[in-house]
Nucleic acid binder design. Structure first.
Length: 259
DNA sequence: GGTAATGTTAGACT
DNA sequence: TAGTCTAACATTAC
């Protein structure tokens, strides 16, 4: 479930499992997700250690030594798993690292829409990809500034990685749900005061999701994620949850309290 | 067996 | 020109 909160949970997981272990084997069976050549990735990882982690939006960076990073992007499906016995290798493993201690690390990518790349400088990568500031680091002023100069639907703007990095389809819905803003409201019709509220809600939703380990069942009762289906009862106002579509993606919202 | 799914992006559209 | 939108990608789960 790889939006910002999911990737942050993966990052924390990597921090407590794979750091400072020497890599002995590197297997990359899914060619289409490689953004660096197989040999480049191998060369950087073999006999080296992952020493730190970083994240920008939905991109995870595993630092190799002090010069390079292994960038992982999950696409629509993805997970990471550290395990001790090779027999437990997860299905759809797109990268398998074997450590000196005999344990393994798998980058799982079912739909193969993810990416693996060796990245030298994170800031330069972010610039190249034209990613906006990370959703948890963006300043209030910058947020207002970015959204004020856009047109189109408010949900599209929240999901646009070039404005703000990290918010995807599910959490955009969640943020709008708590801010009481209809996903198909035009940005031009949203007051600055409402933009401020969106900013506050974005932070609280993302932080709450991370605290809940990105598991819907662990989130507060009034969260839309827990009942993300048509005709469910709204946890905030008792209204009816409806489903519509925007750019081919599903949109869930409360027909009563989101305007 | 049809349908839908958490992301990105090239190319079409406005 | 530049911002916005659509379709396509690949695979599984229900």
């Amino acid at each position: 479930m790889p939006e910002l909160p999911d990737v942050e949970v993966y990052r924390q997981y990597c921090n407590r499992t794979i750091l400072n272990k020497k890599i002995k084997t590197v297997s990359l069976p899914v060619k289409r997700i490689l953004d660096s050549s197989k040999s480049t990735i191998r060369r950087h990882l073999k006999e080296n250690k992952l020493v730190n982690t970083d994240r920008h939006g939905k991109h995870l960076f595993l630092k190799i030594g002090d010069e390079f990073n292994l960038m992982l992007h999950f696409g629509m499906t993805g997970d990471v798993e550290y395990f001790k016995n090779k027999k437990n290798k997860p299905k759809h493993t797109a990268m398998l690292l074997g450590f000196e201690n005999g344990h393994f690390f798998s980058f799982i990518n079912i739909r193969k829409l993810g990416k693996i790349k060796i990245v030298k400088n994170i800031n330069e990568f972010v610039k190249e990809k034209q990613l906006g500031p990370d959703a948890l680091s963006i300043k209030k002023k910058k947020f207002i500034e970015l959204l004020s100069e856009k047109r189109g639907f408010v949900k599209s703007a929240l999901m646009n990685q070039k404005s703000i990095a990290g918010v995807g389809n599910i959490y955009a819905d969640e943020i709008l749900f708590h801010a009481g803003v209809h996903p198909k409201k035009k940005l031009s019709q949203i007051s600055e005061r409402k933009l401020l509220e969106l900013y506050e809600r974005m932070l609280s939703v993302l932080n709450t999701a991370i605290e809940s380990k990105a598991q819907p069942e662990q989130m507060p009762k009034k969260y839309l994620l827990r009942e993300r289906k048509p005709n469910a009862e709204c946890g905030i106002c008792g209204g009816k949850i409806k489903k519509t579509e925007l750019s081919g993606r599903p949109v869930y919202y409360c027909s009563k309290h989101q305007h």
